[in-house]
Nucleic acid binder design. Structure first.
Length: 516
RNA sequence: GCCGCGUUCGUCUAGGGGUCUAGGACGCCGCCCUUUCACGGCGGUAGCACGGGUUCGAAUCCCGUACGCGGUACCA
């Protein structure tokens, strides 16, 4: 390999980082690491109109959360003026590299590969209106129409001079040649070719002096010595324009790989609106907030369009790095399977220690309280900050939840007595002879020392009672469960009782005996 | 409309001329475990879009059709 691999993830700060964007970043990251190359983060903020203030920070935080640390790029976003970078190819915000785009744009004009265009938006729109037909709903500004427009190809020298003097606004457009075939080898798709007839005279430099994506990305990829462009399939159609630009600028184009899109379950790009309608979070921030396991998300995303080639599904980052290759990336769009993501999350969550999860739970409660509660009771408060207690909750619920916040929902009864009892379970299990047995059990466990209030002992006592009465285990176990947890199912009852503690259990039993 | 790309179980995918009566995973269903539920174990369900070629032989190669997706901006 002649030159060292350098790839970039180049998001636009027009919104929060999208989950699909994270996958693109991941593939770039894996590719870079696999080849011992460099992973660059570049912010493509050339669209003033769509700029979103918090987006830059969100991109940095989201990548860091996922563990995809760029080797070069912005380190921290302070404010507009003050940016901190790492790497020798900066600045890594396109808005701060504007001079070079203008320079290359005029170089292209001088060489006859581009031209100045003075058409107003209205003029272009009226040209499109004039030419629009059912057969051609989107007329292009191209070799056919450019000679009817107001640009440096059609205007006379004096006219141009006048426009220049009055400081008229202009754009620079690429002069796409007619009758050529642009071909290139896509690392994912193989040979791809386009006829220049289908291309328009793309604006390279906008009226505000900033470049469009097309110019900026070519200039920067070359300037930053990017060797492989790995990006979403939505860019495939504009790739020939980029190839043309590399040619006209006299540069060697980087290798390209266009990734299949992530699709919504109902089809089409996984757009924000569509995804959320289907219960799928689209912003990486949502995954962070809902405390998804980062490794699970990364693992899931890696397999959405790529496969290691064998049956492994649970892969560590190291394994992904070792086995990643663009050749093994699929060509067709992948539907976001939310249930499978949950499965990954369960797998990773169960592999983590109770203490670790308990600490996260504590933080979660501190941040947003308990579900459905405006404020915490004294007992809830006390238990929510007791890490041993929380670890106990985790241990009992770990195998039954998919997402971290679910511990709080499924385990609400651990924090305070249930407010009501599951009707169906009561109807099924709470009969006339039940109160007597429950009372008996209560009396028996009331006499236990704290140290003896343990699951095995609690179970032994119950067994004794049901055997003495000659009834089934469930005749007493189920009523106890409803009385203590309010529900007809849940984690092991005796473990639950032990965690709750004697006094609390006795009190709940008393309440149930009164109410039921 | 035009241009480009794609199409293996519901979903993610393996498979790249014979080893494919197409493998794995998620989901779903059933059974076992558990005197709850879940976890787990076992089993099942379900697929090469269609039509032509090429070939002794095609899920695999070629062509066409259909369908899907992307692009068609002074957005990225």
């Amino acid at each position: 390999m002649s030159s060292k691999v350098r790839v970039r993830f180049a998001p636009s700060p027009t919104g929060l980082l999208h989950i699909g964007g994270l996958r693109t970043a991941l593939y770039n990251y894996l590719f870079a690491r696999h080849h011992g190359g460099t992973f660059v983060l570049r912010i493509e903020d050339t669209d003033q109109a769509r700029y979103v203030e918090e987006a830059g920070q969100d991109i940095l935080e989201s990548l860091a959360w996922a563990g995809l640390h760029p080797d070069e790029g912005p380190v921290a976003v302070r404010d507009e003026q003050e940016q901190e970078y790492k790497g020798n190819y900066g600045p890594y915000h396109q808005s701060r590299r504007r001079d070079r785009y203008a320079m290359y744009a005029s170089q292209l004009v001088d060489a006859g590969y581009a031209y100045y265009a003075y058409d107003t938006v209205e003029e272009i729109e009226s040209m499109r209106d004039r030419l629009r037909t059912a057969e051609n709903p989107n007329p292009k500004y191209d070799a056919q129409t450019r000679m009817q427009m107001r640009n440096s190809l059609t205007l006379s020298e004096p006219e141009l001079q006048e426009l220049l003097e009055e400081g008229a606004e202009y754009v620079v457009r690429l002069k796409v040649p007619a009758g050529e075939t642009v071909q290139f080898e896509d690392l994912v798709r193989g040979p791809v070719s386009f006829e220049t007839e289908g291309l328009d005279d793309q604006v390279l430099l906008k009226g505000d002096g900033l470049p469009t994506y097309h110019l900026a990305n070519v200039v920067d990829d070359h300037g930053m010595e990017i060797t492989h462009v790995i990006r979403g399939e939505e860019w495939l159609s504009s790739a020939p324009k980029h190839i043309l630009l590399y040619r006209y600028l006299g540069w060697e184009p980087p290798a390209m790989a266009h990734l299949p899109l992530i699709m919504s379950p109902s089809g089409g790009k996984l757009s924000k609106r569509k995804a959320e309608e289907e219960g799928i979070p689209v912003n990486v921030r949502d995954y962070r907030r809902e405390r998804y396991d980062r490794d699970a998300v990364v693992n899931f995303l890696a397999l959405l369009g790529w496969s290691p080639g064998d049956d492994r599904e649970l892969l560590t980052l190291e394994e992904m790095i070792r086995d990643f290759s663009v050749e093994r990336v699929g060509k067709s769009g992948a539907i976001f399977d939310f249930k499978k993501l949950l499965w990954f999350n369960e797998q990773y969550m169960r592999n983590r220690s109770d203490a670790e999860l308990a600490a996260e739970l504590e933080e979660l409660i501190r941040e947003r309280g308990l579900p459905g509660k405006d404020s915490l009771t004294e007992m809830e408060q006390q238990r929510a900050t007791d890490t041993d207690f929380l670890a106990g909750v985790v241990r009992l619920l770990k195998e039954r939840v998919s997402l971290l916040p679910e511990f709080l929902e499924a385990g609400a009864f651990f924090f305070d007595a249930p407010v009501d009892f599951d009707e169906k379970s009561v109807r099924k299990g709470w009969k006339e002879d039940t109160p007597a047995r429950v009372s008996l059990y209560r009396d028996r466990i009331a006499g236990l020392e704290d140290a003896a209030f343990r699951a095995d002992e609690l179970k032994r006592i119950l067994t004794e009672i049901v055997e003495a009465e000659g009834v089934g285990f469930g005749k007493l176990m189920m009523p106890l469960r409803v009385a203590v947890t309010g529900a007809g199912s849940g984690p092991d009852l005796f473990e639950t009782l032990e965690l709750l503690g004697r006094d609390e259990v006795l009190q709940r039993l008393g309440t149930a005996l009164e109410k039921l």
